[in-house]
């Protein structure tokens, strides 16, 4: 008889718990299938120097950060100082200028600074598709062999740099 009253209560509490957990989940966060896989290769014109090419092979040999950005992306603008900070502490920062125009992108860099070692100019967005890009900014961290080890969608914050990117970068530096 008592069970009849306890059981609905237990079910209700379980449901509340389930919904509570659901509130903290981000339905927009996509787990990237690229983590632990080789970075997709590309061969693109360099944004700042159209005569030269920037190939994915240039990022090999050292752990590297690969940041997908565009001048039309407001969050990229907010994020930009973080990339300069990463470069300052010695992380090689590469860029993919995604579905942008060259003049807009160059104006962006002139105004907010240019922390990139090299930038691929992906006007059509095809390289972005290969990298599974769906929302700029996106940032990848690769080891020296070109394996993608970490991906962050959205703005890099000081917290993410301190807690995720730098510790992993130091660890990747140690790996042979």
């Amino acid at each position: 008889m008592k069970l009849r009253f306890v059981l609905p209560l237990v079910a209700f509490v379980a449901l509340v718990g389930l919904l509570w957990v659901g509130l903290s989940l981000d339905p927009r966060a996509l787990p990237s299938p690229l983590i632990g896989r080789e970075a997709p290769s590309f061969d693109l014109p360099e944004l700042r120097d159209p005569e030269t090419r920037f190939t994915s092979a240039e990022m090999l040999g050292k752990p590297a950060l690969f940041n997908v950005w565009a001048s039309w992306c407001v969050t990229c603008r907010q994020e930009h100082p973080m990339l300069a900070e990463l470069r300052r502490v010695g992380v090689p920062v590469y860029g993919l200028n995604y579905k942008d125009t060259r003049s807009d992108a160059l104006r962006f860099l002139a105004r907010f600074g240019d922390p990139y070692n090299a930038i691929g100019f992906d006007e059509s967005g095809m390289v972005g598709i290969d990298w599974g890009v769906y929302a700029t900014p996106e940032t990848f961290l690769m080891d020296r062999h070109g394996m993608i080890r970490f991906k962050h969608i959205g703005m890099i914050t000081p917290d993410i740099i301190e807690q995720k990117i730098l510790p992993l970068y130091r660890q990747l530096e140690m790996e042979s």
């Binding site: 996509l30 787990p31 990237s32 299938p33 690229l34 598709i129 290969d130 990298w131 599974g132 769906y134």
Partner: peptide
């Protein structure tokens, strides 16, 4: 598509 964006 799955190779790039996952089962999602």
């Amino acid at each position: 598509m799955v190779a790039r964006y996952g089962d999602f």
